[in-house]
Write a protein that binds this DNA or RNA. Sequence first.
DNA 1: CGCGATTTGTGCACGTCTTCACAAGCGCCT
DNA 2: AGGCGCTTGTGAAGACGTGCACAAATCGCG
Lengths: 256, 256
Amino acid sequence: MSQHRHPGASGRAGVVPALPDLPEATVARLPEYLRALHNLAETGHETISSEGLASAAGVNSAKLRKDLSQLGSYGTRGVGYDVALLIDQIEYVLGLTQRRAVALVGVGNLGHALAGYDGFATRGFRIAALFDADPKRVGEEISGLVVRHIDDLPRVAAEEAIAIGVIATPAAAAQRVADELVAVGVTSILNFAPCVLSVPDGVDVRKVDLAIELQILSFHEHRKASLTRLPATGGSTLTALPGGLAAPDTQEAIGT
Amino acid sequence: MSQHRHPGASGRAGVVPALPDLPEATVARLPEYLRALHNLAETGHETISSEGLASAAGVNSAKLRKDLSQLGSYGTRGVGYDVALLIDQIEYVLGLTQRRAVALVGVGNLGHALAGYDGFATRGFRIAALFDADPKRVGEEISGLVVRHIDDLPRVAAEEAIAIGVIATPAAAAQRVADELVAVGVTSILNFAPCVLSVPDGVDVRKVDLAIELQILSFHEHRKASLTRLPATGGSTLTALPGGLAAPDTQEAIGT
DNA sequence: CGCGATTTGTGCACGTCTTCACAAGCGCCT
DNA sequence: AGGCGCTTGTGAAGACGTGCACAAATCGCG
């Protein structure tokens, strides 16, 4: 289903405009801009040019300007962007004006680390409850929170307005946990389990798989190694030892 | 991400073909296919159709076929793909035929969890060494590995062929660690610190930021909430409570 | 008050990714 | 052997994202 934009319907009365529907690629970059802006604010900057903010966020300046223009931004030509204003803008668009409650399910190896990760607290979220299915883990206290049994999820969800569920269970349990989260009204899930979740329409799932990230890097390693074995067109002097098909590890080959 | 491709290095005769340079989007999906294929192999499947594999991997079947065709695939029309053969193909392309050594820097909250995460070991990697800058942490044993001081990195890198560096330090230390990794020849970095790393050309960096993932979800939550408040086209004016349990009927499909 | 320096916002062209739709190929059954 | 149903591989078209280049807008200064 294509989303239709309302070109002229932005004239909503009030200071807070209706949410524009941003391109996904832009949404994915806004948090990075926000982090860079907070850094800039702490170092005393009141305004920042698109070039400066772009390099702080690790992107191209044209892309950044286009992204910010999507949210009807308020930059000043010849000057730049007001840092504080832009922070407010982005935080509003991302829905960070309220501190959203997060439920974390699975307090194993990774769950422990996530429960103690202060990046959540400092960037707009509050871990409201920890859950696990293992009775031996229920009752344990982690970072000031007591682990509850997953069966208590409905009751806790009724008390706290859980906005986001984080799944840090083994893959085998992830789908059932997702179903239970959806059942209590959670519509956003961050999944660390290496499996595909199926959820009804209207529920957003984002997946983080650490091994996949490494495998992508491995591909590039593999490709770089195979390139150095081939004679390059520019005649670089990097011809390593040609070990035939049994490729030895290209150790510290790149020396800039 | 800043790689340039070498034109003309294609059709190379021989048993092991030269690496085709795949689209990044395809590379990012191959690990997911691989995981699904391993599941299928364990459940006894010998062949699988593109439709079946696609649904197991959570993608569209046309996309999957195009992805696999990129690597000169070996499907059989009317039958499907040979599971074992496809696993070998993908593992070769991803460079997983050798078990790559990973150096993990920063054994704080997150680093501890990563050191104990068995998904690395089971999916083609070996954590070869742990490092930290804090003398109080040096010497500690985690999952059978002793934490070394970051200053020992050059010596360890000379012994083990470190292929990938994982940074799990605070943001303030990440850039220096990255520089040191690059200095000892590491050309692939997985960065968990919330900051932008600058590295020379030829070094790949992938970033995982847990708070950013939550913020992206927060945006969609915010948008969904604002949509339910507005009367949709032909709208049934059901006013859902914030965090309500009712599933509204007019939810837009959100690309994940 | 006007001019030049600077920086934003954006039209446009280009490249990448996705999706559809269908011909080509394969195995099975008669 | 031949036909039929099923599945892959791919051309083409459309959607999406990116980057250039420049007009429009703003500030500071003489």
